[in-house]
């Protein structure tokens, strides 16, 4: 079941030059159960932003009926969202899509690049609740792009790469020592981030016989499988990222 609910913006915390965490308070009805990796289509009432914006669920507090979104300011719509005053109403169409599934091993690595770290916090929390300790590998351009590391560290080990070497290992996530061992010490990769990064991880997973779940960020309009704009080629032909994904087993994609 999908819902169209009004939320109230109760907190807006700037993390970096272009990342803001929005805390949204639900209304009278309790939140439906959300899966990590699922997303919401957020209505933006701003000139130049006609369609809703698909944003992944960053964190959930069922008791307080709050959802957190990690918003990267990339254009008119996202900038309008981060400029909203506390108390503003935000309409969300949610929960959408298929999220990450539980692994058949306790040895997991969660790899996020850029804004792709957003769903991994909620995923980490979900894994922990299911008795699996998450390990994070987070890649950004510079140390200034690292977001909410403390929140991730509360759940498990956090490893970092930066392109300029200003924090952690210099390079891309694939250059981190954890990826360099002959036999990886993890069996599952969960990832979200730039497609180029996820394709490299998918290849790595194939080479080492690991499972790899990737979350795509295709441009979309409706978010509910009606417009067929956000397709990705799969073993079964074109599939909608919004309803068949956004999380796919990397082997299912035509990568």
């Amino acid at each position: 079941m999908k819902y169209l609910h009004d939320f109230t913006l109760v907190n807006s915390e700037r993390q970096t030059d272009d990342f803001v965490v929005l805390t949204l308070q639900g209304g009278a009805e309790p939140l439906p159960e959300l899966q990590p990796g699922q997303f919401a289509e957020v209505r933006v009432d701003a000139p130049g932003a006609y369609l809703r914006r698909p944003l992944s669920i960053h964190d959930v507090d069922y008791d307080k009926q709050q959802i957190k979104l990690l918003v990267q300011e990339v254009g008119t719509g996202t900038r309008a969202l981060t400029a909203l005053a506390l108390g503003s109403t935000i309409n969300m169409l949610y929960p959408l899509g298929k999220g990450y599934s539980l692994p058949d091993s306790k040895r997991v690595l969660l790899v996020g690049g850029g804004c792709g770290v957003a769903p991994l916090l909620f995923l980490g929390r979900y894994l922990k609740k299911n008795g699996i300790t998450p390990r994070f590998l987070i890649g950004t351009r510079t140390a200034a792009g690292l977001v909410r590391l403390d929140a991730y560290r509360e759940l498990g080990e956090v490893m970092v790469t930066t392109e300029d070497g200003s924090a952690g290992t210099k390079g891309y996530v694939i250059h981190h020592p954890v990826m360099k061992t002959e036999t990886p010490d993890f069996d599952w990769i969960y990832t979200c981030g730039p497609e180029a990064m996820m394709r490299i991880l998918a290849k790595y997973a194939n080479k080492h016989g690991l499972s790899c779940q990737v979350s795509l960020e295709n441009h979309m309009a409706c978010g509910i499988g009606a417009c067929l704009c956000c397709i990705t080629p799969t073993k079964d032909g074109h599939k909608c990222t919004c309803t068949d994904g956004p999380v796919f087993d990397s082997k299912y994609l035509q990568w």
């Binding site: 006609y50 441009h219 417009c227 074109h238």
Partner: peptide, 12 residues
């Protein structure tokens, strides 16, 4: 199968 991705562009 329809056309290849990308199939959508937001406009004013």
């Amino acid at each position: 199968q329809g056309n290849d991705y990308p199939r959508m562009a937001e406009t004013p």
